[in-house]
Amino acid sequence: MKLVNFRRIEITDLIAGGLVTVVGLFAAIRSLASYPLGSASRMGPGYYPMLIGGVLIVLGLCIAFARAFQQPTGEVVDREAMPLGEDDEEEDIRSVLRDTAPSIVLVPCAIALFGFLLERAGLIPACVGLTVVSVFAASHFSWVRLVELIVAIPIIAYLIFVVGLGLPFELVKGWF
């Protein structure tokens, strides 16, 4: 037998609230330590960020623990009756992570590769590199799509940015 309506403190709440609190602490401490506060009438550069930091700390704690106070809730509550757009906390964070794992790795890699190649090898190699890496983030791979994109993306980029806007991109340059 299991009781569904004792909801534990949500892990997403804890992480989200914790991160917000940490950012707030960082802002407040750094403002106090490194920037002059000034007075209320003549504020120094530290006054405003210190206030922001303080509010962030409070909000972070609210996010992390608010549910603990309005606790036991759960399935008895009619989800349909909740206001539209209410967070769907039931969505398991781990399953989302698992589903998107390839794109979490590949999309940033594609962007980083573009940044790495752009000034070293030129616009076209950078576009090709970005395309090759990023297509593998899709759920299935297709050679046709890869070739189409490798041809299309540099052409689109050339037409819009070099021809259309007249930006001085070097299309291909010597690496070595």
């Binding site: 999309v107 594609a110 962007i111 980083a112 573009f114 940044g115 752009l118 000034e119 616009l123 950078a126 576009c127 970005l130 395309t131 990023s134 297509v135 983030a137 899709a138 759920s139 297709s142 799509r145 189409e148 994109l149 299309a152 993306i153 689109i156 980029a157 819009i160 940015f161 806007l165 930006l167 991109f169």
Partner: peptide, 26 residues
Amino acid sequence: TILYPIILAFICIGVYSINSSVFDIY
């Protein structure tokens, strides 16, 4: 699946073009 590589390329080139700075891509 066709659109997102184009979107990514557009984002990267666009953000670079503002200051000609690779830093902005990162």
